[in-house]
Design a protein around this nucleic acid. Structure first.
Length: 445
RNA sequence: GGUUCCUUAGCCAAGUGGUAAGGCAAUUGACUGCAACUCAAUGAUCGUCGGUUCAAUUCCGAUAGGAACCUCCA
Protein backbone atom coordinates (compact mmCIF):
# COMPACT_ATOMS: atom_id res chain seq x y z
CA UNK A 1 0.00 0.00 0.00
CA UNK A 2 1.44 3.32 -1.07
CA UNK A 3 1.18 6.01 1.57
CA UNK A 4 1.19 9.57 0.33
CA UNK A 5 1.86 12.48 2.64
CA UNK A 6 2.07 16.20 2.16
CA UNK A 7 5.61 17.31 2.88
CA UNK A 8 5.97 20.92 4.02
CA UNK A 9 9.63 20.76 3.01
CA UNK A 10 8.83 20.31 -0.68
CA UNK A 11 5.27 21.68 -0.54
CA UNK A 12 4.13 18.56 -2.33
CA UNK A 13 2.40 15.30 -1.68
CA UNK A 14 5.05 12.61 -1.73
CA UNK A 15 5.05 8.87 -1.69
CA UNK A 16 6.33 7.72 1.67
CA UNK A 17 9.43 5.54 1.74
CA UNK A 18 10.75 4.64 5.17
CA UNK A 19 14.47 4.94 5.90
CA UNK A 20 14.44 1.47 7.42
CA UNK A 21 12.08 -0.92 5.65
CA UNK A 22 9.06 -1.73 7.79
CA UNK A 23 9.85 0.94 10.34
CA UNK A 24 8.71 4.50 10.88
CA UNK A 25 10.49 7.09 13.01
CA UNK A 26 8.12 9.86 14.02
CA UNK A 27 8.71 12.88 16.21
CA UNK A 28 6.07 15.42 17.22
CA UNK A 29 6.72 18.55 19.26
CA UNK A 30 4.96 18.22 22.59
CA UNK A 31 3.62 20.78 25.06
CA UNK A 32 5.35 23.09 27.45
CA UNK A 33 3.86 21.92 30.72
CA UNK A 34 3.15 25.12 32.61
CA UNK A 35 -0.67 25.09 32.44
CA UNK A 36 -3.66 23.06 31.29
CA UNK A 37 -3.63 22.67 27.51
CA UNK A 38 -6.49 23.86 25.30
CA UNK A 39 -8.28 21.87 22.61
CA UNK A 40 -5.87 23.17 19.98
CA UNK A 41 -3.18 21.05 21.56
CA UNK A 42 -5.36 18.02 21.01
CA UNK A 43 -5.20 18.30 17.24
CA UNK A 44 -1.65 16.98 16.79
CA UNK A 45 -2.38 14.48 19.53
CA UNK A 46 -5.20 13.06 17.42
CA UNK A 47 -3.77 13.57 13.94
CA UNK A 48 -0.43 11.92 14.55
CA UNK A 49 -2.05 9.18 16.58
CA UNK A 50 -4.19 8.27 13.59
CA UNK A 51 -1.12 8.35 11.38
CA UNK A 52 0.65 6.03 13.79
CA UNK A 53 -2.34 3.67 13.93
CA UNK A 54 -2.49 3.60 10.15
CA UNK A 55 1.18 2.65 9.94
CA UNK A 56 0.72 0.01 12.61
CA UNK A 57 -2.30 -1.43 10.85
CA UNK A 58 -0.20 -1.71 7.71
CA UNK A 59 2.44 -3.62 9.64
CA UNK A 60 5.03 -0.93 10.31
CA UNK A 61 6.89 -0.74 13.56
CA UNK A 62 6.47 2.85 14.70
CA UNK A 63 8.80 4.68 17.03
CA UNK A 64 6.86 7.74 18.06
CA UNK A 65 8.62 10.28 20.24
CA UNK A 66 7.05 13.41 21.66
CA UNK A 67 8.79 15.65 24.16
CA UNK A 68 7.71 17.54 27.25
CA UNK A 69 9.28 20.93 27.70
CA UNK A 70 9.55 20.81 31.46
CA UNK A 71 11.82 23.79 31.94
CA UNK A 72 11.34 27.29 30.57
CA UNK A 73 10.54 30.80 31.78
CA UNK A 74 6.82 30.20 32.16
CA UNK A 75 7.39 27.12 34.27
CA UNK A 76 9.86 28.97 36.42
CA UNK A 77 7.41 31.84 36.87
CA UNK A 78 4.61 29.44 37.75
CA UNK A 79 6.76 27.60 40.24
CA UNK A 80 7.82 30.80 41.97
CA UNK A 81 4.31 32.21 42.17
CA UNK A 82 2.94 28.98 43.61
CA UNK A 83 5.92 28.24 45.82
CA UNK A 84 6.42 24.87 44.22
CA UNK A 85 9.41 23.43 42.47
CA UNK A 86 9.61 23.49 38.69
CA UNK A 87 9.60 19.74 38.83
CA UNK A 88 6.32 19.65 40.76
CA UNK A 89 4.70 22.07 38.36
CA UNK A 90 5.84 20.05 35.36
CA UNK A 91 4.82 16.76 36.93
CA UNK A 92 1.35 18.07 37.71
CA UNK A 93 0.68 19.34 34.19
CA UNK A 94 2.20 16.29 32.52
CA UNK A 95 -0.23 14.12 34.46
CA UNK A 96 -3.09 16.40 33.47
CA UNK A 97 -1.97 16.34 29.84
CA UNK A 98 -1.67 12.58 29.69
CA UNK A 99 -5.11 12.30 31.20
CA UNK A 100 -6.40 14.33 28.22
CA UNK A 101 -4.51 12.12 25.80
CA UNK A 102 -6.08 9.04 27.33
CA UNK A 103 -9.55 10.48 27.34
CA UNK A 104 -9.41 11.46 23.70
CA UNK A 105 -8.27 7.89 23.17
CA UNK A 106 -4.89 8.56 21.67
CA UNK A 107 -2.13 6.18 22.57
CA UNK A 108 0.79 7.71 24.38
CA UNK A 109 3.87 7.97 22.18
CA UNK A 110 6.38 5.18 22.51
CA UNK A 111 8.66 7.63 24.32
CA UNK A 112 7.96 10.96 26.05
CA UNK A 113 11.35 12.40 26.99
CA UNK A 114 11.70 15.52 29.14
CA UNK A 115 14.19 18.28 28.60
CA UNK A 116 15.55 18.04 32.11
CA UNK A 117 16.54 14.43 31.43
CA UNK A 118 18.56 15.46 28.39
CA UNK A 119 20.62 18.36 29.66
CA UNK A 120 23.98 16.61 29.31
CA UNK A 121 23.15 15.58 25.74
CA UNK A 122 22.03 19.13 25.01
CA UNK A 123 25.25 20.58 26.39
CA UNK A 124 27.31 18.17 24.31
CA UNK A 125 25.30 19.02 21.21
CA UNK A 126 25.72 22.75 21.74
CA UNK A 127 29.44 22.28 22.23
CA UNK A 128 29.54 20.57 18.89
CA UNK A 129 27.79 23.51 17.25
CA UNK A 130 30.23 25.94 18.83
CA UNK A 131 33.17 23.82 17.66
CA UNK A 132 31.81 23.77 14.15
CA UNK A 133 31.53 27.53 14.15
CA UNK A 134 27.73 27.54 13.87
CA UNK A 135 27.23 28.94 17.35
CA UNK A 136 28.96 31.57 19.49
CA UNK A 137 29.24 32.27 23.17
CA UNK A 138 28.59 35.68 24.67
CA UNK A 139 28.66 36.31 28.38
CA UNK A 140 27.52 32.86 29.52
CA UNK A 141 24.97 32.42 26.75
CA UNK A 142 25.19 30.52 23.51
CA UNK A 143 23.51 31.63 20.29
CA UNK A 144 23.06 29.85 17.02
CA UNK A 145 24.41 31.86 14.13
CA UNK A 146 21.72 31.74 11.49
CA UNK A 147 24.00 33.15 8.81
CA UNK A 148 26.06 29.94 9.00
CA UNK A 149 23.24 28.16 7.18
CA UNK A 150 22.92 29.28 3.54
CA UNK A 151 19.40 27.93 3.05
CA UNK A 152 18.01 29.08 6.40
CA UNK A 153 14.21 29.43 6.33
CA UNK A 154 13.60 26.90 3.58
CA UNK A 155 10.74 25.17 5.37
CA UNK A 156 8.71 28.33 5.99
CA UNK A 157 9.79 30.08 2.76
CA UNK A 158 11.33 32.82 4.83
CA UNK A 159 14.20 34.79 3.42
CA UNK A 160 16.61 36.15 5.95
CA UNK A 161 16.62 39.62 4.40
CA UNK A 162 12.84 39.90 4.58
CA UNK A 163 12.87 38.63 8.12
CA UNK A 164 15.34 41.20 9.27
CA UNK A 165 13.36 43.99 7.63
CA UNK A 166 10.09 42.86 9.17
CA UNK A 167 11.52 41.74 12.47
CA UNK A 168 9.42 42.88 15.35
CA UNK A 169 11.93 41.45 17.74
CA UNK A 170 13.90 43.97 19.63
CA UNK A 171 17.53 43.36 19.03
CA UNK A 172 19.38 41.88 21.87
CA UNK A 173 22.73 43.58 22.15
CA UNK A 174 24.40 40.23 22.56
CA UNK A 175 23.20 38.73 19.32
CA UNK A 176 25.12 39.23 16.13
CA UNK A 177 21.85 39.18 14.24
CA UNK A 178 18.24 39.48 15.44
CA UNK A 179 17.56 36.12 13.82
CA UNK A 180 20.09 34.29 15.94
CA UNK A 181 18.49 32.30 18.72
CA UNK A 182 19.36 30.95 22.14
CA UNK A 183 20.84 27.52 22.46
CA UNK A 184 21.80 28.07 26.08
CA UNK A 185 20.22 30.75 28.18
CA UNK A 186 21.75 32.20 31.30
CA UNK A 187 19.27 32.17 34.15
CA UNK A 188 19.51 34.00 37.42
CA UNK A 189 16.43 32.62 39.11
CA UNK A 190 14.67 29.29 39.22
CA UNK A 191 15.94 25.88 38.23
CA UNK A 192 19.23 25.97 36.39
CA UNK A 193 21.88 23.57 35.20
CA UNK A 194 25.65 23.62 35.06
CA UNK A 195 27.35 24.05 31.75
CA UNK A 196 30.75 25.06 30.38
CA UNK A 197 29.24 28.54 29.92
CA UNK A 198 27.87 28.85 33.43
CA UNK A 199 24.49 28.18 35.04
CA UNK A 200 21.50 28.29 32.79
CA UNK A 201 18.98 26.26 30.84
CA UNK A 202 18.60 24.96 27.28
CA UNK A 203 16.85 27.05 24.65
CA UNK A 204 13.57 25.75 23.31
CA UNK A 205 14.69 25.23 19.73
CA UNK A 206 17.56 23.02 20.66
CA UNK A 207 15.79 20.43 22.76
CA UNK A 208 13.83 18.80 19.92
CA UNK A 209 16.89 18.63 17.69
CA UNK A 210 18.91 17.02 20.47
CA UNK A 211 16.25 14.50 21.43
CA UNK A 212 15.92 13.34 17.85
CA UNK A 213 19.70 13.15 17.64
CA UNK A 214 19.96 11.16 20.88
CA UNK A 215 16.98 8.84 20.67
CA UNK A 216 16.95 7.82 17.02
CA UNK A 217 19.86 5.97 15.53
CA UNK A 218 19.89 7.74 12.19
CA UNK A 219 20.80 11.38 11.73
CA UNK A 220 17.56 11.90 9.90
CA UNK A 221 14.10 10.56 10.77
CA UNK A 222 11.12 9.73 8.61
CA UNK A 223 8.55 12.22 9.83
CA UNK A 224 8.58 15.28 12.01
CA UNK A 225 5.23 16.78 12.95
CA UNK A 226 3.73 19.69 14.82
CA UNK A 227 1.35 22.62 14.53
CA UNK A 228 1.54 25.11 11.66
CA UNK A 229 2.73 27.83 13.94
CA UNK A 230 5.88 25.85 14.73
CA UNK A 231 7.08 25.97 11.13
CA UNK A 232 8.78 29.23 11.82
CA UNK A 233 10.92 29.74 13.67
CA UNK A 234 10.92 26.51 15.66
CA UNK A 235 11.21 23.91 12.92
CA UNK A 236 13.45 25.98 10.71
CA UNK A 237 15.70 26.41 13.72
CA UNK A 238 15.73 22.68 14.41
CA UNK A 239 16.65 22.10 10.81
CA UNK A 240 19.40 24.71 10.93
CA UNK A 241 21.00 22.98 13.91
CA UNK A 242 20.85 19.59 12.26
CA UNK A 243 22.33 20.99 9.07
CA UNK A 244 25.19 22.50 11.02
CA UNK A 245 25.72 19.38 13.11
CA UNK A 246 25.22 16.58 10.61
CA UNK A 247 24.41 18.12 7.27
CA UNK A 248 20.91 16.58 7.33
CA UNK A 249 17.57 18.33 7.39
CA UNK A 250 16.49 16.31 10.44
CA UNK A 251 13.42 14.72 8.87
CA UNK A 252 12.50 13.56 5.40
CA UNK A 253 8.89 14.57 5.78
CA UNK A 254 7.65 17.60 7.69
CA UNK A 255 3.97 17.54 8.55
CA UNK A 256 1.97 20.41 10.02
CA UNK A 257 -1.54 20.34 11.40
CA UNK A 258 -3.93 23.27 11.14
CA UNK A 259 -5.46 25.20 14.02
CA UNK A 260 -8.71 25.01 15.88
CA UNK A 261 -10.77 28.16 16.04
CA UNK A 262 -13.53 28.75 18.51
CA UNK A 263 -16.68 30.44 17.22
CA UNK A 264 -14.73 31.79 14.23
CA UNK A 265 -11.99 33.31 16.32
CA UNK A 266 -8.54 32.20 17.22
CA UNK A 267 -8.30 30.89 20.74
CA UNK A 268 -6.51 33.30 22.94
CA UNK A 269 -6.09 33.50 26.65
CA UNK A 270 -6.10 37.26 26.68
CA UNK A 271 -9.57 37.56 25.12
CA UNK A 272 -10.95 34.64 27.09
CA UNK A 273 -11.91 32.86 23.88
CA UNK A 274 -10.52 29.57 25.04
CA UNK A 275 -11.63 26.03 25.68
CA UNK A 276 -9.36 23.81 27.69
CA UNK A 277 -8.99 20.21 26.68
CA UNK A 278 -10.18 18.94 30.02
CA UNK A 279 -13.36 21.04 29.90
CA UNK A 280 -14.03 20.02 26.32
CA UNK A 281 -13.57 16.36 27.16
CA UNK A 282 -15.84 16.67 30.18
CA UNK A 283 -18.68 18.37 28.30
CA UNK A 284 -18.34 17.01 24.78
CA UNK A 285 -16.89 13.60 25.49
CA UNK A 286 -13.88 11.91 23.96
CA UNK A 287 -15.43 10.28 20.89
CA UNK A 288 -17.39 13.35 19.74
CA UNK A 289 -14.40 15.64 20.28
CA UNK A 290 -12.15 13.28 18.40
CA UNK A 291 -14.67 13.01 15.58
CA UNK A 292 -14.79 16.79 15.26
CA UNK A 293 -11.04 16.80 14.83
CA UNK A 294 -11.18 14.05 12.23
CA UNK A 295 -14.04 15.39 10.15
CA UNK A 296 -11.82 18.07 8.58
CA UNK A 297 -8.58 17.42 6.76
CA UNK A 298 -5.70 17.86 9.21
CA UNK A 299 -4.02 20.66 7.26
CA UNK A 300 -7.09 22.90 7.22
CA UNK A 301 -8.36 24.94 10.12
CA UNK A 302 -11.35 23.56 11.97
CA UNK A 303 -13.89 25.79 13.64
CA UNK A 304 -15.72 24.73 16.77
CA UNK A 305 -19.25 25.92 17.31
CA UNK A 306 -22.46 24.62 18.78
CA UNK A 307 -24.05 23.16 15.65
CA UNK A 308 -20.85 21.40 14.69
CA UNK A 309 -20.71 19.90 18.14
CA UNK A 310 -24.28 18.64 17.91
CA UNK A 311 -23.52 17.10 14.53
CA UNK A 312 -20.58 15.23 16.01
CA UNK A 313 -22.70 13.93 18.85
CA UNK A 314 -25.39 12.71 16.46
CA UNK A 315 -22.76 10.94 14.37
CA UNK A 316 -21.21 9.24 17.36
CA UNK A 317 -24.67 8.06 18.42
CA UNK A 318 -25.21 6.67 14.97
CA UNK A 319 -21.92 4.78 15.03
CA UNK A 320 -22.61 3.47 18.50
CA UNK A 321 -26.10 2.29 17.57
CA UNK A 322 -24.85 0.49 14.48
CA UNK A 323 -22.07 -1.46 16.12
CA UNK A 324 -24.25 -2.25 19.11
CA UNK A 325 -27.04 -3.66 16.98
CA UNK A 326 -24.59 -5.74 15.00
CA UNK A 327 -22.94 -7.07 18.13
CA UNK A 328 -26.21 -7.98 19.81
CA UNK A 329 -27.74 -9.57 16.75
CA UNK A 330 -24.66 -11.66 16.08
CA UNK A 331 -24.39 -12.82 19.64
CA UNK A 332 -28.07 -13.76 19.83
CA UNK A 333 -27.50 -15.80 16.69
CA UNK A 334 -24.67 -17.58 18.44
CA UNK A 335 -21.87 -16.02 16.44
CA UNK A 336 -18.47 -15.33 17.88
CA UNK A 337 -17.96 -11.57 17.72
CA UNK A 338 -14.36 -11.68 18.85
CA UNK A 339 -13.39 -13.79 15.88
CA UNK A 340 -12.08 -12.62 12.56
CA UNK A 341 -14.33 -12.05 9.57
CA UNK A 342 -13.46 -10.86 6.07
CA UNK A 343 -12.62 -7.16 5.95
CA UNK A 344 -14.21 -4.66 3.58
CA UNK A 345 -11.80 -1.92 4.40
CA UNK A 346 -9.91 -1.08 1.19
CA UNK A 347 -11.52 2.27 0.44
CA UNK A 348 -11.11 3.32 4.02
CA UNK A 349 -7.40 2.55 4.09
CA UNK A 350 -6.89 4.11 0.70
CA UNK A 351 -8.42 7.33 1.97
CA UNK A 352 -6.16 7.45 5.00
CA UNK A 353 -3.12 6.56 2.92
CA UNK A 354 -3.95 9.58 0.75
CA UNK A 355 -2.42 12.19 3.04
CA UNK A 356 -4.66 11.14 5.91
CA UNK A 357 -7.94 12.00 4.25
CA UNK A 358 -10.07 11.33 7.29
CA UNK A 359 -13.16 12.92 5.72
CA UNK A 360 -13.21 10.31 3.02
CA UNK A 361 -12.35 7.59 5.50
CA UNK A 362 -15.42 8.61 7.49
CA UNK A 363 -17.49 8.37 4.34
CA UNK A 364 -16.42 4.72 4.14
CA UNK A 365 -17.57 4.30 7.72
CA UNK A 366 -21.01 5.72 6.91
CA UNK A 367 -21.29 3.59 3.80
CA UNK A 368 -20.60 0.52 5.85
CA UNK A 369 -23.07 1.52 8.54
CA UNK A 370 -25.73 1.82 5.88
CA UNK A 371 -24.92 -1.63 4.54
CA UNK A 372 -24.99 -2.98 8.06
CA UNK A 373 -28.43 -1.59 8.75
CA UNK A 374 -29.77 -3.01 5.53
CA UNK A 375 -28.47 -6.41 6.47
CA UNK A 376 -29.95 -6.09 9.96
CA UNK A 377 -33.37 -5.51 8.42
CA UNK A 378 -33.32 -8.53 6.18
CA UNK A 379 -35.78 -11.30 6.86
CA UNK A 380 -33.18 -14.00 6.43
CA UNK A 381 -30.02 -12.44 7.81
CA UNK A 382 -26.68 -13.46 6.40
CA UNK A 383 -24.73 -13.65 9.63
CA UNK A 384 -21.43 -14.23 7.90
CA UNK A 385 -21.82 -10.98 6.01
CA UNK A 386 -23.08 -9.22 9.12
CA UNK A 387 -20.00 -10.46 10.97
CA UNK A 388 -17.86 -9.02 8.24
CA UNK A 389 -19.55 -5.64 8.61
CA UNK A 390 -19.09 -5.81 12.33
CA UNK A 391 -15.43 -6.77 12.16
CA UNK A 392 -14.70 -4.11 9.55
CA UNK A 393 -16.45 -1.41 11.52
CA UNK A 394 -14.61 -2.39 14.67
CA UNK A 395 -11.31 -2.22 12.79
CA UNK A 396 -12.13 1.19 11.33
CA UNK A 397 -12.99 2.58 14.75
CA UNK A 398 -9.76 1.22 16.07
CA UNK A 399 -7.67 2.88 13.38
CA UNK A 400 -9.46 6.19 13.85
CA UNK A 401 -9.10 5.78 17.57
CA UNK A 402 -12.82 6.24 18.12
CA UNK A 403 -13.58 4.62 21.42
CA UNK A 404 -16.93 3.14 20.50
CA UNK A 405 -17.84 0.00 22.36
CA UNK A 406 -20.33 -2.79 21.96
CA UNK A 407 -21.94 -5.06 24.54
CA UNK A 408 -20.80 -8.62 25.26
CA UNK A 409 -23.91 -10.51 26.28
CA UNK A 410 -23.98 -12.63 29.40
CA UNK A 411 -26.30 -15.62 29.71
CA UNK A 412 -28.55 -13.42 31.78
CA UNK A 413 -28.60 -10.71 29.10
CA UNK A 414 -29.45 -13.27 26.53
CA UNK A 415 -32.31 -14.72 28.47
CA UNK A 416 -33.61 -11.24 29.25
CA UNK A 417 -33.57 -10.41 25.57
CA UNK A 418 -35.36 -13.61 24.65
CA UNK A 419 -38.05 -13.02 27.25
CA UNK A 420 -38.50 -9.49 25.94
CA UNK A 421 -38.87 -10.71 22.40
CA UNK A 422 -41.32 -13.42 23.41
CA UNK A 423 -43.56 -11.04 25.31
CA UNK A 424 -43.38 -8.52 22.53
CA UNK A 425 -44.29 -11.15 19.96
CA UNK A 426 -47.26 -12.08 22.10
CA UNK A 427 -48.28 -8.41 22.17
CA UNK A 428 -47.89 -8.38 25.93
CA UNK A 429 -46.57 -4.82 25.98
CA UNK A 430 -47.19 -4.33 29.66
CA UNK A 431 -44.91 -7.25 30.25
CA UNK A 432 -42.32 -6.37 27.62
CA UNK A 433 -41.87 -2.67 28.40
CA UNK A 434 -40.10 -3.16 31.75
CA UNK A 435 -37.80 -5.67 30.06
CA UNK A 436 -37.09 -3.16 27.34
CA UNK A 437 -36.24 -0.55 29.94
CA UNK A 438 -33.81 -2.96 31.54
CA UNK A 439 -32.23 -3.82 28.19
CA UNK A 440 -31.75 -0.15 27.46
CA UNK A 441 -30.26 0.33 30.91
CA UNK A 442 -27.80 -2.43 30.17
CA UNK A 443 -26.90 -0.72 26.90
CA UNK A 444 -28.05 -3.69 24.88
CA UNK A 445 -31.02 -2.11 23.14
C1' G B 1 6.36 45.12 4.31
C1' G B 2 7.57 39.55 3.55
C1' U B 3 5.52 34.45 3.45
C1' U B 4 1.48 30.96 3.43
C1' C B 5 -3.63 29.38 3.38
C1' C B 6 -9.04 29.48 2.91
C1' U B 7 -14.09 30.76 0.28
C1' U B 8 -18.51 24.23 -2.39
C1' A B 9 -26.32 23.69 -0.25
C1' G B 10 -28.98 26.09 6.85
C1' C B 11 -24.39 23.63 9.27
C1' C B 12 -19.86 20.22 8.74
C1' A B 13 -17.30 18.63 4.46
C1' A B 14 -14.83 15.54 0.01
C1' G B 15 -13.58 16.02 -4.90
C1' U B 16 -12.29 16.25 -10.26
C1' G B 17 -10.52 19.64 -16.92
C1' G B 18 -16.16 16.88 -19.16
C1' U B 19 -21.87 19.43 -16.16
C1' A B 20 -20.87 18.27 -7.92
C1' A B 21 -19.20 12.15 -2.48
C1' G B 22 -20.73 11.76 2.43
C1' G B 23 -22.70 13.36 7.23
C1' C B 24 -25.92 16.64 10.44
C1' A B 25 -30.40 19.47 10.37
C1' A B 26 -35.23 20.05 7.69
C1' U B 27 -39.57 18.15 4.85
C1' U B 28 -42.29 13.84 2.99
C1' G B 29 -43.08 8.66 2.92
C1' A B 30 -42.05 3.45 4.96
C1' C B 31 -41.46 0.43 9.34
C1' U B 32 -43.61 0.41 14.43
C1' G B 33 -48.33 -1.03 20.10
C1' C B 34 -45.71 3.61 21.70
C1' A B 35 -40.67 5.44 21.67
C1' A B 36 -35.81 5.04 19.97
C1' C B 37 -33.04 3.10 15.97
C1' U B 38 -33.45 2.32 10.78
C1' C B 39 -34.77 2.61 5.42
C1' A B 40 -36.37 5.61 1.01
C1' A B 41 -37.12 10.37 -1.38
C1' U B 42 -36.29 15.78 -1.70
C1' G B 43 -31.77 20.61 -1.98
C1' A B 44 -25.97 23.82 -4.85
C1' U B 45 -25.45 27.35 -11.93
C1' C B 46 -18.84 25.16 -6.27
C1' G B 47 -17.24 34.15 -3.54
C1' U B 48 -17.08 37.84 -7.95
C1' C B 49 -14.98 39.35 -12.81
C1' G B 50 -11.92 38.09 -16.83
C1' G B 51 -8.56 34.57 -19.60
C1' U B 52 -6.84 29.63 -21.57
C1' U B 53 -9.73 25.35 -23.47
C1' C B 54 -14.17 21.78 -27.64
C1' A B 55 -15.17 21.82 -22.23
C1' A B 56 -13.50 24.94 -15.62
C1' U B 57 -16.04 24.34 -9.57
C1' U B 58 -11.27 22.11 -10.95
C1' C B 59 -5.73 25.68 -14.68
C1' C B 60 -4.05 31.20 -15.11
C1' G B 61 -4.84 36.45 -13.80
C1' A B 62 -7.45 40.05 -11.15
C1' U B 63 -10.91 41.40 -7.32
C1' A B 64 -13.86 40.94 -2.63
C1' G B 65 -14.04 38.71 2.07
C1' G B 66 -11.67 35.70 5.90
C1' A B 67 -7.38 33.38 8.45
C1' A B 68 -2.25 32.21 9.94
C1' C B 69 3.15 32.95 10.51
C1' C B 70 7.30 36.60 10.73
C1' U B 71 6.41 37.41 19.14
C1' C B 72 9.13 30.03 23.00
C1' C B 73 1.01 30.28 20.61
C1' A B 74 -0.65 23.19 18.56
Amino acid sequence: MEIRLFNSWSDQIESFTPIQPGQVSLYVCGPTVYDFVHIGNMRPVVVFDVLRRLFEYLGYQVTYVSNYTDIDDKIIAKAMSEHRSEREVAEFFITAYEDNVNRINSKLPTATPRVTEFVSEIVAYIKGLVDKGAAYVVDGEVFFQVSSIPDYGHLSHMKTDDLIVGARVEESGKKKSPLDFFLWKKTEKGLSFDSPWGKGRPGWHTECAVMIDSIFKEKIIDIHGGGFDLKFPHHDNEIAQSLAQHGTRLANIWMHNGFINLNDDKMSKSTGNILTAKDALATIGGPALRLMLLSTHYRLPVNFNQSFLETARAEVNKMTAAIKQLAVTLQLAGRDIEGRYPLLIDDFIKALADDLNTSNALTSVYDLIKLAHRSLRENKPDYERMGSYFFTLKTMFHILGLDINYPRLTEDDRSLFERYQAKKAARDYEGSDPLRTELIRRNIL
